[in-house]
Design a protein around this nucleic acid. Sequence first.
DNA 1: TAGCGTATCTAACGGCCATTCGAAATTGGC
DNA 2: GCCAATTTCGAATGGCCGTTAGATACGCTA
Lengths: 224, 224
Amino acid sequence: MSQQEVSTRSRRTSHPKSAITRQRILDAAARAFSLKGYAATTINDIAMTAEMQGGSIYYHFESKDDILQEVLDVGITRVFSAVRLAVGSLPASSAFSEKLEAAVTAHLTMLLQQSDYTSANIRVFEQAPAAVKRQNRKLRAAYGEYWGRLLSEGQRAGAIRRDVDLMVLRLLLLGAMNWAATWYRPGDLAVSELAQNVCDIVLNGAGLDSNHLERSSKGRRARS
Amino acid sequence: MSQQEVSTRSRRTSHPKSAITRQRILDAAARAFSLKGYAATTINDIAMTAEMQGGSIYYHFESKDDILQEVLDVGITRVFSAVRLAVGSLPASSAFSEKLEAAVTAHLTMLLQQSDYTSANIRVFEQAPAAVKRQNRKLRAAYGEYWGRLLSEGQRAGAIRRDVDLMVLRLLLLGAMNWAATWYRPGDLAVSELAQNVCDIVLNGAGLDSNHLERSSKGRRARS
DNA sequence: TAGCGTATCTAACGGCCATTCGAAATTGGC
DNA sequence: GCCAATTTCGAATGGCCGTTAGATACGCTA
């Protein structure tokens, strides 16, 4: 039984044909998850858009959870790559505000119009079984740390006030972006415009630049 | 059959005993929905924490969807009331920044520590059946318009720059807050502190108040 | 304490859905 | 065009879950 153990797994010696079908299934699943949630999408939903029979999916995947795992992981991997690429392909001398806008634009573009995987991740992660979440959280953590470094670099460069809690800033920024998956509909507002607005508000504030000094002493935190 | 039509409905002439059990069920449901999502919580989950048998629930509610509807509606009603109360009980002469902080604090408090109904709403709305969503959206719209008026008032009072798109600002703000339901865990950071940080960043910006004028001409929007 | 409305229990039904499995079909190498 | 491996089919299984309904218990009033 020790040699059997492996033979039951799907995704054996990845034959070229199979890989394409796999993609088709994952694409269908990502879209369905993103639209209807995890529990509400059935294996047959996925199979139908992938143009096959429900049972056939189990030749490529071990379980529905398995599919979810892969969709979620790809979702993070994609935003992460896109953001890293966008920021990385800027001249090293770029101002922090430019890097930020590049990162925000890339994140929003992936989430809102390019990747069903990323939007599935954002919409469905909370519904995932514990084991699936646990694994995906590793990728999420790495992505979050990337943003942390980006902001911390901006702070060291003097582009971000020293009394701003970077953790809160990061969560606020990512939260504002991710929540857009809930309400954004293409048409009214271009993603790049949205990104500019978000960066503008977060960096410069929505208020008039008047009272930076007249704030009361209590309640402001210098460090964590 | 026309007189039967009504007799099948639950919640008849609200006897005092029944009302309490109803609450117990709704409380259990709100908590369960908020923790596990809608599809993943079974009627028996709800029944168990409400200390009764699954079938008994149908004496008080017509269907699972019915429970969800009520939980979602109560969720919005509660934040709305809390925010309106917090802002309304401020002296009329208060600065906009104070009103904003009161509103943000109230919203976050409800969402993160006071009401399972509100957090259930935020976490589960997207998974709800179309009919349930449609009804709840009315309440959501009213709540959103309240924030819209608050911000627009702030802008007229000169506390918000005129070139800020209020719709984006509102969605950014609510998004940042609602997303906190995903990551906030009590202990590290008090809700009031979080609220202060959020208001600070949104109003004053995280950046140094340097380049308000040196921005390039393209990409800035004066109106919608 | 008898009796009536209220509330809960219990068991069952019916449907849906993830998953399995053996048979059929398809493919690629020779 | 044949064989073996790869892929898909299609029907069946088993379990879970929302919902129903009749029987049972509870609580109050007279």
